[in-house]
Write a protein that binds this DNA or RNA. Sequence first.
DNA 1: GCATGGATATATGTATGCCTGTATATGCAC
DNA 2: GTGCATATACAGGCATACATATATCCATGC
Lengths: 218, 218
Amino acid sequence: MQGPRTVAEQVANVLREAIASGTIKAGTSLRQDDLAEQFGFSRMPIRDALRQLEAEGIVSIHPTKGAQVARMDSAEISEIYALRELLECEALRLSLPNLAGDRLDEAEQVLDQIDAERNVGRWGALNRAFHLALYDACGNNRLLALIEAHHNAADRYVRILLSNLDYRSRSQTEHRDLLAACRRRDGDRAIGILRQHLREGSETLVSAIREDGLSRKS
Amino acid sequence: MQGPRTVAEQVANVLREAIASGTIKAGTSLRQDDLAEQFGFSRMPIRDALRQLEAEGIVSIHPTKGAQVARMDSAEISEIYALRELLECEALRLSLPNLAGDRLDEAEQVLDQIDAERNVGRWGALNRAFHLALYDACGNNRLLALIEAHHNAADRYVRILLSNLDYRSRSQTEHRDLLAACRRRDGDRAIGILRQHLREGSETLVSAIREDGLSRKS
DNA sequence: GCATGGATATATGTATGCCTGTATATGCAC
DNA sequence: GTGCATATACAGGCATACATATATCCATGC
């Protein structure tokens, strides 16, 4: 596994993490000159990085007006979660018959890691790792890429969820229920749990955003 | 409706159309210098355009190795059609209850246009317009964007399909059946027809690609 | 006092040049 | 004769410089 080969990729990775972790807030305008100076590179790789992040739906670019961290209101969060439900339930349905036992063991280890992890910033990645492990055998790489893209797009909001201790506890319970259903090869039950899991996440997140006022327009 | 605001967008549009129409074949390497000379601009807007097309999955870029028109083998075509089936059936299910009658009239006009159109290059766009008209009221903009992205990614292959007179005739019959089911507000039937329509397209296209050898690796 | 137009400033879009990395070909050694 | 190493060439990434568009502010006129 080799690291990023270009400066643009490095910049994109740093910005993605900064946005996901909340260091750079939604709506912040990302000026090419400022970023170039901060990173110590010219504007060109920064432009490439911003294009990359735009493709991922993390920033929005308007010609001659620059880039800013994409704002998501509760409606967009709902859309993303509706898509996650559609895509991930299908991936699980396709994957489960082909899912080897040791993959499930790996998924369980990830759950243990989540319980042990005290660094808030790691929860998002671990949460994603657990979900993707279950879908890994679905046989459709584009489907997996779409799922990962939606995880990335909503990452900074999911982290808000996961920083809520109560939600995190419920989430882990559901994760273990889901894993148990997968071990029993009970596809319908597993998909049902996953669907319920995502809907709870969506509802919790939407109400959290509404009261936090995170959706306010600048 | 204002046109492209930047050179990069214009270049991206021209390249997208050239690739979709088959003027630029799959696997062709897209050298920045050559394109810059052909278009009469510098390499920078060409770079931006290629990044944009990469995000759309139309070209693939490898650092220091340049860009080339993305090759799709039959497996990738199958993946795209599996996703189209998943996404479009869901969009239709969500849209149908909110779909106004005049929208259906518009869709029918598009079908008439397809029958009347003699320019092969227009069929792809009209075909897409018909499908999107049906999903328009689904209420999830991201879902619509994903569907449109998948239409674009497979466009040049769909055009191969549509240039087949026999397939085109069958396709139109299915389109009209689908429209009729929508008018009757028979959601299950409409989704069933759509699913069958997409599966036929996938199978026809996969076998066409296999025998045409379009998936050969340079 | 308000509105409109023009000018200026700022940030993005575009052009060009240089450097680095990779691939290929050739030569030498085994 | 084959394999490996080195050198050269080519293409892309990055930097610097220039052009353009847009927004804001100030001035002038009504």
